[in-house]
């Protein structure tokens, strides 16, 4: 936990060029968002602002905050997935470097920062630990918008927060099962054999993603 710090809004940072349709998100989450979305979603919006600062201003302070929070968790995830401490350390540094290099691809209306970093770490894990190619779905013909809609981003962050809370509220056996699936301790046939996947838990998150896709196609 050496590098771990909470991620408060960066009071000392210079005001960002407003990343969302003419509004300053920092001002926004300091006022309205906290009231509307609660502390946890505010934290998620703070991550979004940090990634945006990395994207738009190569903001090293914002990156350091993301690093302090996420790197120890990525490392832990990789070690639980079977990486040695050295390999996990190296791999985590690469994952965090990828975050910087691909900040332009991040779309807060599609994913929470935690989700996005997880997918980068997972792909690195497949590459390094499993030594396989990772076929990815075709990109949709529309990429992330230059100025994603702020309210859509907030709804997505809230929905992801709700998902996290629903997972935390599961009976511990069921929760352990999910963790084991993501750490690679269950084969696909074992996942299939285990009944009681908490589909209900993630249903509203799926519905939201589908609404977004349909909306984007119009």
């Amino acid at each position: 936990m050496l590098l771990e710090t909470p991620t408060p809004p960066k009071a000392d940072a210079p005001p960002a060029v407003p990343p969302y349709k003419g509004q300053d998100v920092r001002a926004f989450y300091k006022t309205g968002a906290r009231r509307v979305t609660g502390e946890q979603s505010t934290k998620r919006m703070a991550w979004v602002v940090q990634v945006t600062a990395v994207r738009d201003h190569q903001d090293k302070a914002a990156f350091a905050e993301l690093f302090a929070y996420f790197a120890p968790r990525v490392k832990s995830f990789l070690m639980k997935s079977g990486a040695s401490p050295d390999m996990a350390e190296e791999c985590t540094q690469e994952v965090m470097a990828t975050l910087w290099n691909k900040a332009k691809m991040f779309d807060p209306t599609k994913a929470s920062v935690s989700t996005w970093i997880f997918t980068i770490a997972r792909n690195r894990k497949i590459d390094i630990l499993r030594k396989q190619r990772r076929p990815e779905p075709e990109d949709l013909p529309w990429g992330p918008e230059a100025e994603p809609d702020q309210s859509e981003a907030i709804v997505l962050q809230q929905e992801t927060e709700k998902l996290g809370q629903a997972l935390a509220a599961l009976p511990s056996e069921q929760r352990k099962l999910i963790e084991r699936a993501y750490y690679g301790e269950l084969s696909h046939s074992e996942i299939a054999a285990e009944t009681g996947l908490p589909l209900g838990t993630i249903k509203s998150r799926i519905r939201l993603a589908l609404d977004r896709l349909r909306h984007a196609m119009k």
């Binding site: 350390e89 997880f118 779905p137 997972l167 998150r205 993603a209």
Partner: peptide
Amino acid sequence: RAALSAYDAVGGEVMLDAEPIAM
């Protein structure tokens, strides 16, 4: 595609919940 984004999100939450290991 929509369902996958939700399962990716589950992965993100599992990762967030992992006991941090110092870099």
